[in-house]
Amino acid sequence: MTQPTAPYRQLRRPTTDRMIGGVCSGLGRYFTVDPTLVRVLFAVAAVLTGGLALLAYPVMWFLMPEEPADAPAWPTA
């Protein structure tokens, strides 16, 4: 008899709790930190790298799949 396993975490852009594309919100959910903290760290990284970090955002936006509409509400416990 096999025991049910918890579903693995998936890096996805949520359809709710997004400001632009949902990248920072998705990263925050994946790493279980507040998405606002991820947004602040991303802004600081953009300033410290002279805007170079801003190139990563559209790349992540393109590569991260969007969360399905029937996904469970976050946080799941």
Score class of each variant (00 low, 15 high):
residue 1 M to F: 08
residue 1 M to L: 08
residue 1 M to G: 15
residue 2 T to P: 15
residue 2 T to D: 13
residue 2 T to A: 14
residue 3 Q to T: 15
residue 4 P to R: 12
residue 4 P to L: 11
residue 9 R to P: 15
residue 10 Q to H: 04
residue 11 L to Y: 00
residue 12 R to S: 07
residue 17 D to R: 14
residue 17 D to A: 11
residue 17 D to N: 15
residue 17 D to E: 15
residue 18 R to D: 00
residue 19 M to H: 15
residue 20 I to W: 13
residue 21 G to W: 10
residue 21 G to I: 01
residue 22 G to C: 09
residue 22 G to L: 10
residue 23 V to L: 08
residue 23 V to C: 09
residue 23 V to Y: 08
residue 25 S to F: 00
residue 26 G to L: 01
residue 27 L to Q: 05
residue 29 R to L: 04
residue 30 Y to R: 10
residue 30 Y to A: 08
residue 30 Y to T: 12
residue 31 F to E: 01
residue 33 V to K: 03
residue 36 T to C: 05
residue 36 T to N: 13
residue 36 T to K: 11
residue 37 L to I: 09
residue 39 R to V: 00
residue 41 L to N: 09
residue 42 F to H: 10
residue 42 F to I: 00
residue 43 A to Q: 04
residue 44 V to M: 06
residue 45 A to R: 03
residue 46 A to S: 12
residue 47 V to C: 09
residue 48 L to M: 10
residue 49 T to I: 02
residue 53 A to I: 01
residue 55 L to P: 00
residue 55 L to T: 08
residue 56 A to R: 01
residue 58 P to V: 01
residue 59 V to Q: 05
residue 61 W to E: 15
residue 61 W to N: 11
residue 62 F to M: 13
residue 63 L to V: 14
residue 64 M to C: 08
residue 64 M to G: 08
residue 64 M to E: 03
residue 64 M to F: 05
residue 66 E to I: 08
residue 66 E to T: 13
residue 68 P to I: 09
residue 69 A to S: 12
residue 70 D to P: 07
residue 70 D to E: 14
residue 70 D to T: 15
residue 72 P to Q: 05
residue 74 W to S: 03
residue 74 W to E: 06
residue 75 P to N: 01
residue 76 T to K: 01
